[in-house]
């Protein structure tokens, strides 16, 4: 199994990963996986990971990645609006 970026989360991650793989291969891929059976294990893993992401400043990068997306969308939208009155831009 792949390691977590935070060694202290490896154990909870492995428990979640094993659960997910079993559910994915035995249920989801057979069209029977309508709900996530590993939710409680994911909660434990997520709790550990959230702290680790914060400590390493990755949570910041994640929110910046989203904000960046928004910003460039706004620029493109604005350009479009500016172009509308003038026919030759």
């Amino acid at each position: 199994m792949s390691a977590s970026l935070a060694p202290e989360c490896n154990e909870v991650k492995e428990r979640y990963d094993s659960c997910f793989l079993k559910w994915y291969s035995e249920k989801y891929l057979r069209g029977k996986g309508t709900e996530d059976e590993c939710a409680s294990l994911f909660k434990d893993y997520k709790k550990c990971l959230t702290v680790a992401l914060k400590e390493r400043g990755i949570d910041q990068m994640l929110s910046e990645a989203r904000a960046d997306h928004k910003e460039s969308d706004e620029i493109h939208m604005r350009r479009k609006c500016e172009c509308l009155p003038a026919a030759d831009c």
């Binding site: 390691a3 970026l5 989360c9 991650k13 309508t34 709900e35 996530d36």
Partner: peptide, 25 residues
């Protein structure tokens, strides 16, 4: 690739689609 973590994972109840967000280091 040093590590892989799952940030979020959901099954859309109406479409049955599985959405996963991961971070690789």
């Amino acid at each position: 690739v040093l590590s892989t973590d799952v940030i979020s994972r959901t099954v859309d109840p109406s479409s049955g689609r599985l959405h996963t967000l991961r971070v690789h280091r």
